[in-house]
């Protein structure tokens, strides 16, 4: 039975599948996928989550807006957020972390870093 729920927010099906494929290697994990920020907020409102992985560049609502909205919502602000993005400049990273993201991973995607971030934020050994 899954005891940790992760929301993966990514507009690219290929990347969503890759992140989900990577996270499924963790024990007792349930994954929910969202295609943009609005879809993510809808799913966050309907269920409880222990961790969010989000891209930045997405249609309708980008990842930074999603981070700021989650952090301003008393019911959601406790959920750790990891940004996964192609935006690798130092100022982009600072902006993401300043908005309240717990970690900032840059693409190309490295499975080991995704797993390490998830383990740390979910307290999985």
């Amino acid at each position: 039975m899954a005891d940790k729920r992760i929301l993966v927010v990514e507009d690219s099906p290929t990347m969503r599948q890759l992140i989900a494929f990577t996270l499924r290697r963790l024990p007792n994990i349930a994954l929910v996928e969202a295609t943009d920020g609005v879809d993510a907020l809808r799913k966050l409102g309907g269920d409880s989550f222990d961790l969010i992985f989000t891209d930045i560049n997405m249609p309708i609502m980008d990842g930074l807006k999603l981070v700021s909205l989650v952090r301003s919502d008393p019911a959601l602000r406790h959920i750790p957020i990891v940004i996964i993005t192609t935006e690798g400049a130092a100022e982009d990273r600072q902006r993401g972390l300043a908005l309240g993201a717990n970690d900032y991973l840059i693409k190309p995607i490295q499975a080991s870093r995704i797993l390490a971030a998830a383990r740390e934020l979910l307290n999985i050994a």
Partner: peptide, 12 residues
Amino acid sequence: NNLANLYIASYQ
């Protein structure tokens, strides 16, 4: 990890 990347790229 690399195989996973290749598998998913190929699958997609």
